[in-house]
Amino acid sequence: MTAAAVVAPSAAAASGAPPIRQIPLQGAVNVRDIGGQRTCDGRVRYGLVYRGDALGKLTDADLTALSGLRLRQVVDYRVPLEVQSDGADRLPAGVTGVSRPVTDNGLYAQILAAIGSKDPVKQEEMLGNGKASAFMRAVYPQFVTSADNRARFGATLHDIAYGGRGALLYHCTSGKDRTGWTTYVLLRLLGVPEQAAVADYLASNTFRAAYDAKLRESLKQAGLMQNPDLLIPLQEVRTEYLSAALDQVRHDYGSLGRYATDGLGVDRRTAALLRARLVD
């Protein structure tokens, strides 16, 4: 198995959760094992489910590292514009790639439009005065309300439960929103306490911080953005974003369990298989 970096982001440490196993790669910064979390009756197994950001910029060395994970399948949540812009996934030989686009409510297009304008006034109008964070709060409820999104999240959970041998990795562009929601729901279904599941969600901020700061600085140096900090609410995960999805869950389904059952198609048998496969 490939070497994993053991990292304890502050949010995870504060919750008492075990350190997170990041997979160190040159072409992606937010690939990590979801294992290690304590559940009500055990612990989530390592080496079976991974979450990540886009894999289009992986190096040959990265592919060798991923080969050590014994992946059988990689699920890509990105919409076509994201794939077109950032490139298709590079995967080790023998790994099945599945395109399963989940809408980002136009987030990626919004970012490209703002940066591409090169106009500080327009960028402020588009992203300033709380508009960027409001946009993010509007993205998350669609993880719950959109039938297509629910079908694709549900299909990934079914693949984990019924997929047989080998590990599965799912990802989006930054590995924080669509990927973060999938992981939050999965961990909660496995019996991981709320605080620990939220800490895992927030850990993306730690893993992405240096990369995102470098991107903002490069945009400023290139003259594309006078105030690249306008992007910070779009680059980060925040509890208010997760809460927007959970509020929608309560409104539409009453509970996360009912959302999983009625919205994602995770029936009792599937939920039991997930726990049997993933929890020691």
Rank of each mutant, 00 (worst) to 15 (best):
V7S: 11
V7R: 11
P9H: 07
S15H: 06
A17R: 03
L25D: 00
L25N: 00
V29I: 09
D33L: 04
I34C: 13
T39R: 05
C40V: 11
V44G: 10
G47I: 10
L48E: 02
R51K: 08
G56C: 04
T59H: 02
L63D: 04
S67H: 03
S67P: 01
R70F: 06
V74M: 09
V75Q: 09
V83L: 10
R90C: 15
A93V: 09
G97Y: 01
T103M: 03
T103P: 03
G106M: 01
Q110V: 00
A113R: 05
I115M: 05
G116R: 02
G116D: 01
Q123E: 02
M126Y: 02
L127D: 06
N129I: 00
P141Y: 05
P141R: 07
T145A: 15
T145M: 10
R150L: 01
R150S: 02
A151V: 09
F153V: 06
T156A: 13
H158D: 09
H158E: 12
D159P: 08
G163C: 03
G164C: 02
G164P: 04
K176Q: 09
R178Q: 12
T182R: 12
Y184W: 12
V185M: 05
R188V: 10
V192L: 05
V198M: 12
V198C: 12
L202V: 12
A203T: 04
T206I: 00
T206Q: 06
A209M: 05
Y211V: 00
D212A: 11
G223P: 01
L224F: 04
D229A: 14
D229H: 13
I232P: 11
P233L: 10
L234H: 10
V237F: 12
T239R: 15
Y241H: 11
L242Q: 05
A245D: 02
A245F: 03
D247E: 14
R250H: 08
H251S: 15
S255V: 01
L264C: 13
D267V: 10
T270L: 14
R275M: 06
